[in-house]
Design a binder for these strands. Structure first.
Lengths: 171, 171
DNA sequence: CTGGTTGCAAACAATTTGCAACCCA
DNA sequence: TGGGTTGCAAATTGTTTGCAACCAG
């Protein structure tokens, strides 16, 4: 990471201030890559893969491995949330304090466009399921898949249905 | 695959008869491995990984690669369903015609025990989501995670929270 | 200074692919 | 017989780890 985005420190946007204090209290460091990642996630409000994040921060700013390690850390700290759209690559989104907590997505199986679904209607289901089977600390993963308006026209049927599960569907 | 499970042909259980006719009409072959896989899945009514399937059919019956290829085929034909519990390995379950169609699971994050949840309460949500965003052919994936009764006692807290996402949680 | 971090190379694990040998229909 | 199948080896891809150099506090 050559040059730190100093403007970040100036604005001291919420997530960053958050990061700083949280890191400090666990004897961890506020480093360039970590700041850059949060910054990126703050701009692009959409689930991003590690590779996308890496590519997005131009000029070999930091190693891909560092991204992986940072995401683990940030996830542990509850600053990002991991999503799994079934294509074998993890995606991460910034956890913004305001409202945008637990939510789901609607993913186009053709162009992989992602729509954020803000309300979570499954909370009540969790309770029901937990009660029915005696489980504790029950959470859930719920994602929707379909064909977006754009792809419906183009009638872009997937040529290789056996690969449909790979979201960034290169059929 | 040395010796074909001939008793399968005798009983001619539903899934197998199904397989035979379906394969034939698409100019594909009814082979030993395919029969063995369906047979296994019919017995062990639980989501199995390719590796588990492979291990289960003793004596190098068939190559792991063949399992992978077969699962793709069977999935395409709609005879098995793929599930993803977020641990990076696909699991498959037999699609039995009777009732047991679309359903979900409750997975213990500690011992990875899997409970089948028969009712799907999210069907209506699909419609709502589809309508709201103009998507077609909308489906969803929904799985629940928590700590099963057994693991609650043992209070087996995960030592490495950063790895909690790996279901067969070797923490 | 010094322990948390990073980069780089290498290890890993799940899955896929190429290709020649093989076998069901 | 012939095209779908399989086995084996090798390639791919996402992710993790070992380790020495490095830097934030």
């Amino acid at each position: 990471m050559k040059k730190r985005h100093s403007h970040l420190l100036v604005h001291a946007p919420e997530p960053l201030a958050n990061l700083t204090s949280r890191l400090r209290q666990s004897a961890r460091r506020v480093t360039g890559p970590r700041q850059a990642i949060l910054d990126l996630l703050r701009q692009q409000r959409r689930p991003m893969t590690n590779k996308e994040i890496h590519a997005a921060m131009a000029e070999g700013d930091c190693d891909l491995v560092t991204i992986y390690r940072s995401m683990h850390l940030l996830e542990e700290m509850g600053m990002v949330k991991r999503f799994d759209f079934g294509d074998g690559t993890a995606r991460f989104e910034l956890v913004t304090g305001d409202s945008h907590g637990h939510h789901h997505h609607l993913v186009c199986t053709s162009c992989s466009e992602i729509v954020e679904i803000d309300d979570c209607f499954a909370a009540e289901l969790e309770l029901r399921v937990a009660a029915a089977h005696g489980f504790k600390r029950v959470t859930h993963k719920l994602e929707f898949f379909g064909v977006c308006p754009g792809c419906q026209q183009k009638s872009l049927a997937c040529k290789r249905p056996d690969r449909a599960r790979r979201m960034p569907c290169g059929c």
